[in-house]
């Protein structure tokens, strides 16, 4: 399993691995927002938590179709099914690798981009905390979507259509935490809900992902 993690990380960092693409996308989305809604500081400050969460979510979504599709094309998935590691474990590891190469950089970049959007000072801690608690759920749910669409040619758009509704609870609690935090309100309730969703999905979704992957490879 560590071998799989090491390989996925190494592949992500090598040329053509796509590491940094999600981060660049996040940056561009955040930069485009003031162009579309105007440069007014108070308006930007009000929408900053939501924009940052939405940007992080879309950046995460962008990299999902590489998560399993590449391994499917070159036959790795067929071989992994026969390997002596459980497929559920393999998929959890792949989700972890996805989070380490996509989610974690987004969490670290979000406060910097928060400055660009005039995020109130009180919001930085809550924003980072909410992203840290919520992005693992995005990776794990995304792995389920990737497993559902693995055998489908041009499944990228379908993947977005399937995954986005599943992202709704995570987005609501995540953005709510960041928004309340930025407004100086109590935000521990949504943060606790968000953490609950993440823990539950991390524990349960790999079973669903492995089940649909086995069905799809048949």
């Amino acid at each position: 399993m560590t071998a799989l993690l090491a390989r996925d990380l190494r592949l992500a960092f090598r040329a053509g691995g796509g590491f940094g693409l999600a981060l660049a996308f996040f940056l561009i989305v955040v930069v485009l927002v003031p162009f579309s809604v105007g440069p007014e500081s108070s308006l930007l400050a009000a929408i900053a938590p939501g924009v940052l969460w939405l940007g992080a979510l879309l950046a995460c979504l962008l990299s999902l179709d590489r998560l399993l599709a590449l391994d499917f094309e070159d036959g790795t998935l067929d071989l992994l099914v026969g390997a002596p590691i459980p497929l559920e474990g393999a998929l959890s590891v792949k989700a972890l690798a996805h989070w380490l190469t996509t989610g974690l950089p987004l969490v670290l970049a979000a406060p910097v981009l928060g400055v660009l959007l005039n995020l109130p000072l009180a919001g930085f801690g809550w924003l980072t905390a909410s992203l840290l608690a919520g992005t693992p759920a995005l990776s794990v749910i995304g792995t389920f979507g990737a497993a559902l669409t693995v055998g489908i040619k041009r499944g990228g758009l379908l993947l977005s259509l399937l995954v986005l509704p599943l992202y709704v609870p995570t987005l609501i609690f995540g953005a709510e935490t960041a928004r309340r935090g930025a407004m100086g309100m109590e935000a521990t309730t949504p943060l606790a809900m968000l953490t609950g969703i993440t823990l539950a999905t991390v524990a349960l979704m790999p079973f669903a992902s492995a089940a649909v992957l086995r069905m799809g490879l048949r």
């Binding site: 399937l162 669903a208 649909v212 069905m215 799809g216």
Partner: peptide, 10 residues
Amino acid sequence: DLTSVLCLVG
């Protein structure tokens, strides 16, 4: 198979 699991998870 796939849609059934999607329905459950959904």
